[in-house]
């Protein structure tokens, strides 16, 4: 038994040092309850749908979402829009297709199988339109930042006037959660910026939470399945371990020495 304790201590140490290395230089993030945290965590459907609305109306003019397709909006464990709703959403975007029989590219309404339409043709165009800073693709953004959802949630609410002594260039803003505190994105959220169709009051905090939830889903679309399957797998393993333990005791009881 002591061996096991030692092994688990070792694991805790490794994980701990790993967290430490990731935790270098960050301000205390704002905290909120995430419904998807913990071994039984699930997404809040309404929050995902609202988050999609915030993404589309606010973020998507600069930030691409290149690994997501419109069909994903329907899949279980996501925002779970109805197929008709998702088709309407897809059709509201113009998608470049082709070449047609004449060898020309043409625009057509989006379909479920299409990827999310990109706001810019390419990275260079995105940089040119945003003062040299490339607005990062948002699909896996929460996994690409050390602080994860807490970081994104805080960043969206972290705009402040710069403290005395810090001067900011044109097009640079002060954000207390940003690495180095200087960010090229201006404050995007303000109370009542979007009008939620479910009547939720669109405060900055609410929108930040909703859009972050949506981004968590885009980064981990199978999170709910993973949690469910993990629970089953671990329960199963524990049952089998117990059975094997007693079988082992039986078998070893055949020889005289206890091992």
């Amino acid at each position: 038994m002591k061996n096991l304790i030692r092994i688990s201590l070792l694991i805790v140490f490794i994980v701990g040092s790993q967290l430490n290395s990731n935790a270098a230089e960050k301000a205390e993030y704002l905290k909120t309850d995430w419904s998807f945290k913990g071994p039984f965590g699930k997404f809040d459907r309404a929050a995902l749908q609202r988050g999609y609305q915030v993404y589309t109306e606010v973020c998507s003019s600069c930030h691409s979402m290149k690994y997501l397709s419109y069909r994903n909006l329907v899949q279980s464990g996501g925002p779970e829009f109805s197929e008709a709703q998702a088709k309407a959403i897809a059709a509201s975007f113009e998608v470049k297709d082709g070449p047609n029989a004449d060898g020309e590219m043409f625009m057509r309404p989006g379909r479920l199988s299409d990827k999310f339409v990109m706001p810019y043709e390419n990275e260079k165009a995105a940089q040119a339109a945003n003062g040299g800073a490339y607005p990062p693709d948002m699909t896996v953004l929460v996994k690409a930042r050390g602080g994860g959802v807490d970081y994104i949630y805080s960043l969206l609410q972290g705009y402040e006037d710069p403290p005395a002594g810090i001067t900011l260039d044109d097009g640079v803003y002060y954000n207390k959660y940003m690495y180095g505190n200087k960010i090229k994105m201006s404050n995007q959220l303000s109370d009542g910026l979007v009008e939620y169709s479910d009547g939720t009051n669109a405060t900055v905090e609410q929108m930040a939470k909703d859009v972050t939830t949506f981004l968590m889903w885009t980064a981990e679309p199978h999170l709910e399945t993973r949690h469910r399957m993990g629970f089953k797998a671990i329960v199963y393993l524990i049952i089998l371990t117990v059975l094997v333990y007693f079988s082992m005791k039986k078998i070893w009881s055949r020889i005289e020495t206890e091992v």
Binding site: Q18, A144, G148, R226, F231
Partner: peptide
């Protein structure tokens, strides 16, 4: 199942 990215780097 529960912390698949903890050992990787963001």
């Amino acid at each position: 199942f529960y912390t698949p990215n903890i050992l990787g780097h963001a």
